[in-house]
Simulated assay, not measured.
Amino acid sequence: MTTIRYEVAEGVATVTLNRPDRFNAFTPEMGAAYNEALGRADRDPDVRAVVVTGAGRGFCGGADLAFLAEVDEGTAQDVPEGIRPRLAMEIRKPVVAAVNGSAAGVGFALILFADVRFVAAEAKLTTTFSRLGLAAEYGSAWLLPRLVGLGNAADVLLSGRALTGEEAYRIGLAQRVLPAADVLPAALEYAREIAAYCAPRALETIKGQLRADLERPLDAALDAAAALMHASFGSPDLPEAMAARAEKRPPRFQPLGD
């Protein structure tokens, strides 16, 4: 059984963590397959958005504990290469996390680096790092305060406690909170709308702005936005968008190149 399922339909790549018997617990090999799936989606001109979800009742239970039990200081340098949650932020296409159930540790980091998060109301979300004697891994201490504020991030990371999907929504970590059965269908519908109506070049540009502006002062962000807007006027996307509106049809935007 493949540990990562990859399917494409209606402009959306669905990447499914597929170890339901282990609550989709991650191993470095599974991480490498996840990285490959996101890279494949980024290169595929037929893919305009990505949805990441988990098979079975949970999203991801964290790193496989059997694997963690074998890691020590001498072998730890081999661990991060296989698991790169930040890749979801770095690819050019929007990534929507459909968090159908609980997420812990690296599973929490996977949803953190998605662009948008749809979360089951009853899901339990936890970093677990402090309760395993670990540092806050995978850049979570960098990104989480930017999403929910320093106090909320400190609470989540220091205590290692579990948040419900409802609380995640309340502090701004989740953008939608839904019954578990509705999470994936809603995320897919959202992604299909992006695929049908949003220009791939604009999506790439805006993702790049969101990432870069985390570190830029306002004046630099405004200058960059002005330059990017000027370049946008020279692309075929705006005329196509205007023609589509006038003709009352979906736009036919060009796909991204390699």
Rank of each mutant, 00 (worst) to 15 (best):
residue 207 K to Q: 11
residue 64 D to C: 04
residue 97 A to I: 07
residue 198 C to S: 10
residue 169 Y to G: 15
residue 245 R to F: 15
residue 215 E to T: 14
residue 218 L to V: 10
residue 215 E to F: 08
residue 17 L to V: 03
residue 214 L to R: 07
residue 228 L to Q: 15
residue 112 L to M: 12
residue 104 A to I: 10
residue 67 F to N: 04
residue 221 A to P: 14
residue 190 Y to G: 00
residue 196 A to L: 10
residue 237 D to C: 12
residue 204 E to I: 00
residue 66 A to K: 06
residue 21 D to A: 12
residue 17 L to M: 13
residue 190 Y to N: 01
residue 58 G to A: 15
residue 87 L to P: 03
residue 105 G to C: 11
residue 219 D to R: 11
residue 46 D to N: 13
residue 7 E to S: 09
residue 245 R to C: 13
residue 31 G to Y: 04
residue 224 A to D: 14
residue 207 K to R: 15
residue 162 A to K: 13
residue 5 R to W: 07
residue 126 T to K: 14
residue 145 P to D: 08
residue 156 V to R: 02
residue 28 P to F: 11
residue 258 D to P: 07
residue 61 G to S: 15
residue 256 L to T: 07
residue 258 D to K: 01
residue 258 D to I: 00
residue 125 L to P: 08
residue 218 L to R: 11
residue 100 N to K: 02
residue 110 L to N: 13
residue 128 T to C: 10
residue 171 I to C: 02
residue 245 R to L: 14
residue 156 V to G: 03
residue 66 A to V: 05
residue 33 A to G: 11
residue 68 L to C: 06
residue 243 A to P: 08
residue 56 G to C: 03
residue 90 E to C: 07
residue 116 V to K: 09
residue 19 R to D: 08
residue 102 S to L: 08
residue 64 D to N: 13
residue 105 G to E: 06
residue 187 A to M: 03
residue 179 P to L: 01
residue 241 A to R: 08
residue 69 A to V: 01
residue 241 A to D: 09
residue 110 L to P: 01
residue 162 A to H: 10
residue 81 E to V: 12
residue 101 G to K: 08
residue 233 F to Y: 15
residue 76 A to T: 09
residue 149 G to C: 03
residue 176 R to F: 10
residue 66 A to C: 00
residue 181 A to Q: 12
residue 89 M to K: 12
residue 33 A to R: 14
residue 237 D to L: 14
residue 109 A to W: 01
residue 116 V to E: 13
residue 73 E to S: 14
residue 128 T to F: 07
residue 29 E to R: 10
residue 74 G to Y: 03
residue 80 P to H: 07
residue 112 L to G: 09
residue 226 A to W: 05
residue 193 E to R: 15
residue 247 E to M: 14
residue 236 P to R: 02
residue 185 P to F: 02
residue 159 S to P: 04
residue 17 L to D: 06
residue 116 V to M: 05
residue 38 L to Y: 10
residue 253 F to V: 03
residue 227 A to F: 00
residue 53 T to W: 04
residue 82 G to H: 07
residue 230 H to W: 11
residue 254 Q to Y: 00
residue 238 L to C: 08
residue 86 R to T: 03
residue 168 A to H: 01
residue 12 V to C: 06
residue 125 L to G: 09
residue 252 R to Y: 06
residue 217 P to I: 04
residue 97 A to F: 00
residue 186 A to K: 10
residue 101 G to W: 05
